[in-house]
Amino acid sequence: MLIKVHNLTKVYDEGRGLQPINLTVEKGELIAVIGHNGAGKSTLLKMLASWHLPDSGQVVVDGIDLKNRVAVSRKIGFVPEVPNLFEFFSVEYNLKIFARLFQVPFLRIEEILQEFDLLNFRKNRVQILSKGLRQRVSIGRTLLADPPILLFDEPTSGLDFDMTKEIYRMIKAFHAAGKTIIFTSHRPEEIKTLATRVIMLHQGNLVFDGPPREYFQSEVYEKLCLL
């Protein structure tokens, strides 16, 4: 198995968060983590990405404890809901600084700019880019080190129809290339289109774990997602 989550817990001051969660992720899976607002979806992803530290529990990624952040950093790439880029600098600068830190050759930047159709924007400041373009830069930056695991937090949130389709295409392409992907979502069509497995969280607890078809026929779906 690629990721093993054991009794992972995180409780915020206001009481929300994640109750002890156990799950395993195999290589090549494309998992949708779903649930209402505050269910713990983003918290789970952010803990896997080392953004948040768990209160307790353990995550092992490809045999390495997540506590060893430096060793795991090349294995997991995280694309946040709101791109966190150096806004006053150009697209190229943003990629360069991370390429240096990941110690990847600058040639990789050219590949990323080409792959994400950003060549015409390389000198543009991130500040003036549209949300869709920023998301592309953010994904491109995550892929600099070519991590085998990709985490997307609400990847299509706030994007228009065309850009949403573009993101779907990218996720499918990454999956086809053998990457393991976990994304959070609210959209049923996203789950149907992309996911090979659905994990549903409710009030911090894991309430469903199975294939999408089973999810849409489950009691949980009827009870929690249908009016």
Partner: peptide, 14 residues
């Protein structure tokens, strides 16, 4: 605030 530090901590930087 802009989550830039956390982005930098996604890299092998210590």
């Amino acid at each position: 605030e802009k989550k830039l530090l956390i982005a930098l901590l996604q890299t092998p930087m210590r």
